[in-house]
């Protein structure tokens, strides 16, 4: 087993465990921390796939900004206790089972997908994920969506102001 593979399995396991722990943790703060771990793991995957730019952005945006925002909110609301009332047990089981079913079925469908049976993702190699290449394409071909997403931010900003502002 090569280092890459070891890393892959490790990061995968980390992500899955982290994700599971997000669900299981009773304390929201713990959930957030676990989620950050998941994001780290995913960033690790990105690095492994030689998508360094995304790896960094993922860390900065998700793990850094977003999750901190979550943390702030949780702290602000003083929810950092195990106070969350639990859902009905049966409901939980039903949720888990249906989620599981979804997973099994999607995986089963993918197993039959011919075009990717033997496809491999280029690991550690390839430089499309490098910031230079991405930047070139982003500001040339993707300039329209890039600019348009500003509208999204604008509206999000307005929204946050409208909603968050104290009347």
């Amino acid at each position: 087993m090569s280092t890459t593979e070891i890393l892959f399995w490790f990061l995968s396991a980390l992500a899955l465990v982290g994700a599971t722990m997000v669900l299981i943790s009773k304390n929201p703060v713990h959930s957030i921390l676990w989620l950050i771990i998941v994001f780290f793991a995913i960033s690790g995957h990105y690095v492994l796939l030689n998508a360094q730019f995304l790896a960094i952005v993922n860390l900065i945006v998700y793990a850094g900004a977003i999750m901190v925002l979550f943390l702030f909110v949780v702290m602000l609301m003083n929810l950092n206790s195990d106070s969350e009332p639990q859902k009905n047990k049966w409901f939980k089981i039903a949720g888990a089972i249906s989620g599981g079913c979804l997973m099994l079925i999607m995986i089963d469908v993918i197993r039959d997908a011919g075009e990717i049976q033997h496809a491999k993702a280029l690991v550690k190699e390839g430089n499309i994920g490098l910031i230079k290449n991405l930047g070139m394409v982003l500001f040339k071909e993707y300039v329209v969506p890039f600019e348009i997403s500003s509208v999204l931010f604008l509206s999000a900003m307005v929204g946050a102001v409208v909603i968050g502002k104290k009347d």
């Binding site: 859902k87 409901f91 039903a94 949720g95 249906s98 989620g99 079913c101 979804l102 079925i105 999607m106 469908v109 039959d112």
Partner: peptide, 20 residues
């Protein structure tokens, strides 16, 4: 909300089964 999403997920499962 939980019920809604549960129903949605179940429907998703059924639809995927239906199609495939």
């Amino acid at each position: 909300v939980g019920n809604y999403i549960l129903l949605m997920v179940l429907s998703m499962v059924l639809m995927i089964i239906l199609v495939f």
